Simulated scan of single mutants.
Amino acid sequence: MRINSSLDKQSTNSVFAQVGYYLRQKLHYFNPHRYLCAQLGLTIAGMTLFLFTFTRLTISSILFAALVYLVSEQKRKKEVAKLSTSLNQLVSTLAQQEQAIQMTNQKLNQELWERQKTEQFLRKTQQQFRQIAENIEEIIWIASFEFNQLLYISPAYEKIFGRSCDLLYQDPTSWLELVHRRDRKSLKKALEIHKKQAQPISIKFRIVRPNGTVRWLWSQTFPVKNQQNKLYRSTGIVVDITQQKQAESEMRRSLEQEQELNELKSRFISIASHEFRTSLNKIMSSAEILQNADLNLMQQNKYKYVENIKSSTERMIQIIEEFLLIEK
């Protein structure tokens, strides 16, 4: 029996085919009838050949079993090696995945820490913003860009407009009802420009509070963009400038009065200068007549010229007193 020894290069089916072919040949060669006698059963030669053939068959079976074991063991070793390789690859993959998971966890922990820090900063900033907004006299507001939703309004709105903030949250455009009828057109035009051109606006207008009092307001509105550079909010500040307007009105009246007084002074000075010159001329002429008069000048005429000098002097004194009175 000759079998190829390079078992690692032959498949199991090929080995089984070779062994099976050898056994079939031997069984075909062995014919018991050639060695049997009708009276004695087996002859010595037949028995000897039978035993020899049986022994060869037994050895062949053992060899076949050993061959099968070797083939199975070699196949098992290959499978074990393959499995070992797969396990090594799996361990390596798991190690890489574990490392990746650790890095991901570290990144997530860092992001979580940064997020908590950001949220803490935002809460602190929001608290500071509310402390400022709720304790100043100006109105601070935040709304959607289309003004159809009010996001925040400071408590100063109730003090300035005389209406509750809750009513404004329910109807964000209700404040327009309080705008003075003479200022509504210009205010609506400014708001339209803000919506169409997304430009900051600054406008002064009046409101009529529910109690009938009129207040002057100065409103500044600004567009707000998000991270995508898209407009999504509007914010602004409203200042009560009623006292400033009243001061301006009083100053205007003072300027007008001062202008009238200056005009009066100018007219007075013009008239006074004329009166002054007239009085001085009378004094000078009367004095010259008295100085150049003859000793025979009648007493009555002397008295007349002295009275002219006296009346002119009194008139000049009166003009000076009136001038000093105007200066006060």
Results as ranks from 00 to 15, higher is better:
residue 3 I to V: 10
residue 7 L to R: 08
residue 7 L to W: 13
residue 13 N to W: 12
residue 13 N to Q: 15
residue 13 N to A: 15
residue 21 Y to L: 10
residue 24 R to Q: 06
residue 25 Q to C: 02
residue 27 L to I: 08
residue 28 H to S: 06
residue 39 Q to C: 06
residue 58 T to V: 12
residue 63 L to M: 08
residue 64 F to M: 09
residue 67 L to A: 06
residue 68 V to A: 13
residue 71 V to N: 11
residue 72 S to N: 15
residue 77 K to P: 00
residue 78 K to M: 11
residue 82 K to R: 12
residue 86 S to C: 03
residue 92 S to T: 12
residue 108 L to F: 14
residue 113 W to G: 07
residue 121 F to Y: 11
residue 125 T to S: 15
residue 132 I to H: 02
residue 135 N to D: 03
residue 141 W to M: 01
residue 142 I to Y: 06
residue 145 F to E: 04
residue 148 N to R: 08
residue 148 N to Q: 13
residue 149 Q to C: 06
residue 156 A to T: 02
residue 158 E to D: 08
residue 159 K to N: 08
residue 161 F to D: 00
residue 189 K to W: 10
residue 194 H to G: 01
residue 196 K to S: 09
residue 201 I to Y: 05
residue 207 I to T: 03
residue 214 V to D: 03
residue 224 V to F: 02
residue 231 L to V: 04
residue 231 L to T: 02
residue 233 R to N: 03
residue 240 D to R: 06
residue 241 I to D: 00
residue 245 K to L: 05
residue 267 R to F: 08
residue 268 F to A: 09
residue 272 A to C: 04
residue 274 H to D: 08
residue 290 L to W: 02
residue 292 N to T: 13
residue 302 K to F: 07
residue 305 Y to M: 03
residue 305 Y to P: 00
residue 310 K to N: 09
residue 310 K to L: 10
residue 317 I to R: 12
residue 318 Q to C: 05
